[in-house]
């Protein structure tokens, strides 16, 4: 366990946080009543997130009514991702909605998380994650919708592949300090262009290539080999929902696993892309160097995963009651 690197600080990631719009529960209720019935097979869902857009708050993985498939009978049970909305980068997830509170408690959470982690790992191994990087940030949601009382018990997990021994970090600092003034300006402009273009606005993982003339370009992950020849520096960039000044956000974890498994890098310069009011903010964005001392055998099996969301610091599910807006008798009273 005692590696030279353990002297260096561990790279610690701020967990992803969830936010569920009221509309999600409304649509889940009507899907359950009108289409699914007692069928409790898992449902594919979509979550949405965006880079941090304010220095004081992190962004969340948000579920909206569009996260669920449409109720109409001919529609498939797979929600359609909407492409090109910069404030809605899609993340695919899976929903296990149980019929009773007992079966909600009885779900084997450890195994469900493992199952999702395995999907992420498979996509890393096959190279699919390089082609479609949105699969790196899968999530898992378990729920019990009590439609008699209009209350919803739920618990999110954001599976993160664990790197063992954990990555350490050197030189984590605001991008504007890490880069030269010319590089900062060029990268800022390149990021704004990337976020402004419909084809790349919702692509959350990318490469930054900086040439010897301080000119930065943002590239797709699959261009990694092509970047090698002419780039002076390469940064691995991602949309960071986190606002904290000393910690990168959760999406970097699976990204590091991809970078290590795919390109075998021991030292990774990463770029936590953050915005202020919708534009690149290079003093809020971070650049750092992650050091990996992973033994070769690590890649041979699916790594362990963590990621159940805490509820006010505790490992318990959340519960929301929407009786006020959903219970017909209460609605009748308030409308009288």
């Amino acid at each position: 366990m005692v590696e030279p690197n353990t002297k260096k600080p561990l790279l610690q990631f701020a967990p992803m946080q969830s936010s569920v719009d009221e509309g999600f529960w409304h649509r889940l209720s009507s899907l359950k009543l009108n289409k699914l019935g007692i069928d409790d097979s898992p449902i594919p869902v979509l979550g949405f997130f965006a880079p941090c857009s304010h220095p004081r708050v992190s962004n969340y993985l948000t579920l909206l009514s569009e996260s669920l498939p449409s109720e109409s009978s001919e529609a498939s049970l797979i929600p359609e991702p909407s492409h090109g909305n910069r404030n809605r980068c899609s993340v695919s997830g899976i929903l296990y909605n149980t019929n009773t509170v007992e079966s909600f408690h009885a779900l084997d959470k450890q195994n469900l998380l493992k199952e999702e982690a395995r999907k992420i790992w498979d996509d890393i191994q096959t190279g699919r994650a390089v082609e479609d990087c949105s699969v790196l940030s899968r999530f898992l949601l378990i729920s019990f919708a009590d439609l008699k009382k209009w209350s919803f018990h739920y618990w999110f997990a954001f599976p993160a592949l664990m790197i063992d021994p954990p990555a350490t970090v050197v030189n984590l600092s605001p991008a504007s300090q890490w880069l030269s003034k010319e590089e900062t300006e060029s990268l800022s402009a390149a990021c704004n262009e990337w976020r402004g273009s419909k084809s790349t606005a919702d692509v959350p993982f990318f490469l930054v290539a900086i040439d010897p003339n301080s000119r930065a370009t943002v590239r797709l992950l699959k261009d990694w080999e092509a970047c090698q020849s002419n780039a002076h520096k390469i940064l691995f960039g991602f949309y960071d929902p986190c606002h904290l000044p000393n910690n990168p956000g959760w999406p970097l974890r699976n990204f590091l696993a991809l970078i290590f498994a795919r390109w075998n890098l021991k030292s990774v310069q990463f770029f936590c892309y953050r915005e202020n009011r919708g534009f690149a903010d290079m003093s809020l964005s971070l650049v750092g160097e992650a050091l990996l001392t992973v033994p070769q055998g690590w890649k041979d099996s699916v790594p362990n995963a963590v990621g159940w969301e805490l509820n006010k610091g505790r490992k318990v599910p959340r519960c929301i009651s929407l009786a006020q807006s959903m219970d017909p008798t209460r609605l009748a009273v308030s409308a009288a």
Partner: peptide
């Protein structure tokens, strides 16, 4: 909704054992 079982009182979530030094606890 006092009759809703308070999930916080269920303590049998020990099947989730996550000790992970890389998680930053806010």
């Amino acid at each position: 909704d006092e009759d809703i079982p308070d999930m916080a009182e269920f303590t049998e979530y020990d099947n989730i054992i996550e000790t992970d030094p890389s998680t930053y606890l806010v």
